[in-house]
Computed example of a mutant assay.
Amino acid sequence: MASARIPRRTLCAAVESAAAAGWRSRWERLKSTKAGVWCRGLLSDYKEACRDVVVSAWERPLKASVYASLLGGACLCFHLKPDRPAFDARLLECSNQLGLLSPWIRSGTSDSHVQSLVKLRNEGRLRHVGLGFLSLVYRADYDPSTALYEAQCSGLSVPWRELPHRVLDVGFAGRWWVLHAKMNNYDINEEEFKNLPAHMQSTSPPSVQEVERNESLHMASWTPPPPVEETDHETVEDQQSEKQ
């Protein structure tokens, strides 16, 4: 039995060595091909580029920090870029906020802008396009499902040079900026104060002294009045008798 195991082990070792030699020969032939040479050159270039980046960052940490901050900011802006569902949700939220106010209270600027966007949305004329770090919402002339020749013909579509005149909102860093600006002071009706004098149409925040004075008056209003001293009834009568 022992004599039979020795030739078997020798044969297995010979087969393994032959397979390893064949694998090495095939790997050498693969590395010597054009694709292998190109891959080795590409890996070598990437290795040198990474080494140069590490060395440059070590020698100039301030410059590397600025570049890293710009790259991180660009990635963050790309990740926070709002999409079309976010615009629809924000538009409906603004419409609900204005609907809770009386027409005599809500801002005319906010109401007209939101109502125009809602009308375009209901007509299917709002379009959305993503531009890397930005998102644009613009108006179109027709709904894409409209069965009109003007709406379906690609030759009559709106050219890109007219896009700046059709942009309705810009999305950046997780916010729609035009809609946010239009909703500023949406609960103040500017038309309500247009007939007031000029000095009453604008108000300024109170100064620190006025705020402190108002707070002191408010605290003093909560202070109980001092007790009135009660005089003895006999003492009052004596004083009256002396006067007589």
Rank of each mutant, 00 (worst) to 15 (best):
M1K: 11
M1Y: 10
A2W: 09
S3A: 09
A4V: 11
A14R: 14
A20W: 10
A20P: 05
A21N: 09
W23Q: 13
W23V: 11
R24M: 06
E28Y: 13
R29D: 02
R29G: 03
R29F: 01
L30R: 14
K31N: 10
K31I: 00
S32C: 05
S32A: 14
T33S: 15
G36Y: 03
R40M: 02
G41P: 00
L42Y: 06
E48H: 13
C50Y: 14
D52W: 13
S56I: 06
A57P: 07
R60D: 12
P61W: 08
S65P: 00
S65L: 08
V66Q: 03
L71N: 06
A74I: 05
A74D: 04
L80K: 07
D83R: 07
A86Q: 09
F87G: 02
R90D: 03
L91A: 06
L92C: 07
N96L: 10
L98V: 02
L100R: 11
S102M: 03
W104S: 15
I105G: 00
G108D: 00
D111E: 13
S112R: 14
H113F: 12
V114E: 00
V114M: 02
S116Q: 08
S116L: 07
V118Y: 00
E123W: 04
E123M: 06
R125K: 14
R127P: 00
H128T: 02
V129I: 15
G132M: 03
S135L: 04
Y138W: 01
A140C: 03
D141L: 06
Y142I: 00
D143K: 06
P144D: 01
T146Q: 15
A147T: 10
Y149D: 15
C153A: 05
S154R: 10
L156A: 12
L156F: 11
W160E: 15
R161I: 07
E162D: 08
H165N: 08
R166N: 01
V167H: 02
G171M: 02
G174F: 04
G174Q: 04
W177S: 04
H180R: 12
A181I: 09
K182T: 07
M183D: 01
N185F: 12
N185P: 00
Y186T: 02
D187L: 01
I188E: 06
N189A: 02
F193C: 09
N195K: 11
A198M: 15
M200Y: 14
M200L: 15
S202R: 10
S204D: 08
P205Q: 06
Q209T: 13
E212S: 05
N214K: 14
N214Y: 09
E215F: 08
T223C: 04
P224Y: 02
P224H: 01
P225I: 04
P226D: 07
P227E: 09
P227D: 09
V228M: 11
V228I: 14
E229I: 12
E230S: 14
H233V: 15
E234W: 11
T235R: 07
V236W: 04
D238W: 13
D238V: 14
D238E: 15
E242D: 08
E242W: 11
Q244I: 11
